[in-house]
Design a binder for these strands. Structure first.
Lengths: 338, 338
DNA sequence: CTGAAAGCGCTTACAG
DNA sequence: CTGAAAGCGCTTACAG
C-alpha cells in the first residue's frame, strides 16, 4: 500500500541501504546517486515510517507530558494551560512531538507513565507537578528514564527540575501586603501534599515572622477543599478578620472577589488581594488582579530545553533551574490604584 | 538491556510465538502455559514494546490533535482548553494516547500533519478548526486517512464532523437581545476564513432580518484584528451607537467590558453583552457574563468517540453531529438580574 | 561509495 | 495447543 524504502530503491536502481543512507545523512553517498534517490522519493511521495525508524534507532523524537487529572482539578487550571503553551513553543522549535497522558487517580497516572516508558513510546517525560513521595518519580528514577520535574523534589536535590523560588515568591507577597500597611494577612493555599504549596506556606510564615507578625493557624486555608463561600465565611467569622489575602490562583481569587462583593466587602478597601498564576484575564477584570507572576510559560519552555539536553546527553550545567518571579501591583491590592 | 519477548520465552521454556499469543489474547493457549508465561512476565517486569507492536500491527493506539498556532491565537484560547479537556476525558476512557502538534503557519501545520500521517504515528486525527479551503483537510481526504473535524466543512457535507448549529446559536443570541428590547445589536466576530465565524455571521443577519431590523455593515467587526479599545471606539463613534453586543469569546468580552467601564459605559444598562465559549470564569466576574453555551467539552468528547469508531471501522450512523447549545442569561445582558 | 546480511521486538499464517 | 519461519520498514556494521 504505502511506499517503502524498497520501492524507492527499486525505482532508483540502488539498494535499500543506499536509500536509507540518503535519508539519515549520516554516511556519505555519491552526490549523483543521492540526487537521483531524492528525486524518486519525491515522485513516489515517499515518507519514512517513523515507527520503523524508532524501532531500530530506539528513539522517538517524542516527549511525554503527564497531566494530572486536569478535568477535576480546577484549582490549578490556568497553570496547566500556560505551561502547555510554554512546552509547545519549545517542542515545536526542537522538532519534538508531544505525547500526553493522564490518569484519574495516582495509580492510573503511574500506570500510564509505565506504559509510556516501558512501551518505549517517548524519549523523555515532563512532570507538571511534584508531590511528596511521588511514586511516579520513584519509578522514573529506578528506571533511569530521562525526565524533568516542574517543581521541586523534597527528598532529592539532584533531580533535573525547573521551579520558581516559591518560598521567596510567597515571602514577597507577604511583604507587599505589609508595605500596604496590613497586619492581618491570610493565605488560601492549595493541597498540602504538593511541594509548591509547602514552599509557599513556608514563605508565608517567614514573611510574617520577619514583619514581626504572629502566625495564626486560622489564617491558612486549603483552598482546594473549600468553596469560596466557605472560605469567605470562615475568615469573616473570625473575631479578628484578616484585611489581606494571598491566594493560590487567579481563578480562585476571582471567585473569592465575587463572593466578597455579594457580601458587600470591598476589594481592596476592606480586603486586599493578590494571587499566583498570572493570566491574561487578571488585567481584564474589575478590580484588576495583583499578581505574583511566576512566568509559567517560561517554566514549560525551560523544562523542554532541559529534557532535550538530557535526552541528547548534552552537558547540563546545573540540575535545578529557577525561573524568577515578579510582583505585579494592580487594583486588587493597592488602594486608589485605578 | 530491557527485557524482550525472547527473554520471557527462554525463561518460560516456550517459544516467542507462544508468549506473543498470551500477550495478544487472540489465539488460544493452554491455560497452564499461559499462567506460567504470565508469571514470568511479571517476575521479569516484561512490558511489550509498543513501537514494535505498532510496526507489525500497523496501528498505534494514538490519536493526533492538531493545534492551531495556539500561542499567538489568544482570541479562541478558552475554546482550546475546554475542547482538550473533552478530548482527554474520552481518550483516557478508550485507552488511546494523544499526540499533539502545531505549526506557526498553515504550511507548518500541513507539514506537521503530513509527518504524523505518513510517518504512521497516529491512527487518526482531530482537527480543531475548519477553514475555508483548508489544505490540511484536502490532504487528509486525498490520503484517505481517518479524521474528525470539529466544525463544519463548507464544500463537503460527507466529512465526519462534530459541530454546533452556529447559525442557530447566533440567531438565538440576537433573539435574546431583541427580547430584552434592543434594536441596535452589533456583533464582534472572529476571522472570516473560519467556517464557525461565517455561520455565526449568517445567524446574526438572519436574526436581525426576522426581527425586522436592518443589517448594517458598521455593526460587524472582526474582533481578532482589533484591540478592544479600537472596537469600542469604533462602535461608540457611530452616529447610532449599538445598545447590545454579541461577542465571539468570553475573554474578548471581558476585555470589552473593562474598556467600557473605563469610558463610563455601563454594562448592561448602556450596553448589553453576551458571548460564546462559556467558561467557568464567566460566572466569577462582575457583571457575570451571559453566554451562548456551546458545550465545548462535549464537542471534544464526541470528536474522539467518532474518530475511534471510524478507526475501528464500526458503523457510524451519521457523519455530521450537532452538539446543542443553550442560552445562559446572566447579568451582562439582562437589566436588574443581580 | 555501495550491497548483502543481520537485526530492532514483535505478530501471524503455516505446519504439525 | 505450539514452534519455526517470514515479515513489518527501517538501519548499520561488515565486506568489498
Amino acid at each position: 500500500m504505502s511506499v517503502t524504502i524498497k520501492d524507492v530503491a527499486r525505482a532508483a536502481g540502488v539498494s535499500p541501504s543506499t536509500v536509507s543512507r540518503v535519508i539519515t545523512k549520516h554516511s556519505t553517498v555519491n552526490k549523483l546517486t543521492a540526487q537521483k534517490v531524492r528525486k524518486i522519493m519525491e515522485e513516489l511521495e515517499y515518507h519514512p515510517n517513523i515507527i520503523a525508524q524508532s524501532l531500530v534507532s530506539k528513539s522517538t523524537s517524542t516527549i511525554g507530558v503527564l497531566f494530572p487529572k486536569t478535568a477535576e482539578q480546577l484549582y490549578m487550571n490556568l497553570f496547566f494551560i500556560e505551561v502547555i503553551r510554554g512546552i509547545f513553543s519549545e517542542t515545536t522549535a526542537s522538532m519534538y512531538d508531544v505525547l500526553t497522558t493522564t490518569g484519574a487517580t495516582i495509580d492510573e497516572e503511574l500506570q500510564a507513565t509505565m506504559n509510556l516508558v516501558r512501551g518505549k513510546r517517548v524519549d523523555g517525560l515532563i512532570l507538571l507537578q511534584s508531590r511528596v513521595n511521588d511514586p511516579i518519580i520513584q519509578f522514573l528514577q529506578a528506571e533511569g528514564f530521562p525526565f524533568v520535574l516542574i517543581g521541586r523534589h523534597v527528598q532529592d536535590d539532584s533531580l533535573l527540575s525547573v521551579d520558581n523560588d516559591n518560598v521567596k515568591a510567597c515571602y514577597d507577597a507577604v511583604k507587599h501586603m505589609v508595605e500596604q500597611g496590613h497586619e492581618r494577612i491570610a493565605f488560601v493555599n492549595g493541597p498540602s501534599d504538593l511541594v509548591v504549596c509547602k514552599d509557599r506556606q513556608a514563605g508565608y510564615e517567614q514573611g510574617l515572622k520577619d514583619a514581626g507578625l504572629p502566625i495564626r493557624d486560622d489564617y491558612t486555608l486549603d483552598g482546594s477543599q473549600f468553596s469560596s463561600f466557605q472560605a469567605v465565611s470562615t475568615f469573616m467569622s473570625l473575631p479578628e478578620r484578616p484585611t489581606a489575602l494571598i491566594v493560590q490562583d487567579d481563578l480562585m481569587c476571582m471567585d473569592l472577589i465575587r463572593t466578597f462583593k455579594e457580601m458587600h466587602i470591598r476589594v481592596p478597601e476592606d480586603m486586599a488581594m493578590i494571587s499566583f498564576n498570572k493570566m491574561s484575564i487578571g488585567g481584564l477584570v474589575n478590580p484588576t488582579l495583583s499578581n505574583i507572576d511566576i512566568d509559567i510559560f517560561q517554566l514549560g519552555k525551560t523544562a523542554v530545553e532541559l529534557l532535550v539536553k538530557q535526552i541528547r546527553s548534552e552537558k547540563i550545567e546545573q540540575c535545578r533551574w529557577i525561573v524568577p518571579h515578579q510582583i505585579l501591583s494592580r487594583q486588587s491590592s493597592v488602594l486608589g490604584s485605578s
